[in-house]
Amino acid sequence: MIRYARLYLHFLRFAFSKAMEFRADFFFRVVMDIIIYIVHFLFFSIIYLHTPILGGWSIDEMKIFIATFIFIDAFHMTFFANNTWWFPIYINRGDLDYYLTKPVSSFFFMAFKEFAANSLLNLILAIGLLSYMISNHPVALDLSKILVFILLIINGSFLFFMTYFIFLIPVFWTHSPRGFGDVFYSAEKIFQRPDGIFQGFAKKVFLYFLPFSMMASYPTRYLVSPTDNSLLLEILAASCFIYFVVYLLWKKGLRNYSSASS
């Protein structure tokens, strides 16, 4: 464990020195994320001009939800996004060899090597935004629930990454440039919508099979609704399922990996 922590510190050091090379990009990223945050809020503000409730939530609850998915997105951008970007390239160029020959988990290398230091400021902004929304919620929220909520949204960030990875992992077989990443970009909008709007079979799929609703919506529901511990069990079960699926797919993918450039 200590070995992995030390290795991660090295990743961080490299990431910061790399980020310093592109200072303008550092600034542009902050501007980009602020604009994206504003657009998300405007989007739901316009929706609420035409309905008082959406997915069972008022505008105040929705603000916490928006800040939650913004946090998860910022977390993903900072810790995982660059790795998911490089993953198909590693497979197609045969660069995965480099990770397979290291005396550490190849998945750890693949998932964590590229830390986006230029997105760190955005993550801090997102944390500030979420804290503001929680502290300004009209109903005082229980501190213990807030602590559990923090754990849930960190888990939500990992779930987001793992689900994205499921869309990318077919690259082991297809050798295409982006796998099914484009499908994920359309599907990820599910995670930016409250689970309450989904009905029937689709609701079940988005909770347990492609658990987009478990990432931001369920944690928000846990925080703003009367205590319901069954939500925690559902999140735990869905998370274990996805982590297990990724583990199996990774093992299977590695068996199919030929190392040859494509």
């Binding site: 929706i47 035409h50 959406l54 359309s186 909008k189 599910i190 709007i197």
Partner: peptide, 14 residues
């Protein structure tokens, strides 16, 4: 498919 599903459920709810 996903664009349509998301839009349908959102607006059906509205």
């Amino acid at each position: 498919f996903f664009s349509l599903v998301v839009a349908y459920f959102l607006w059906a709810s509205v």
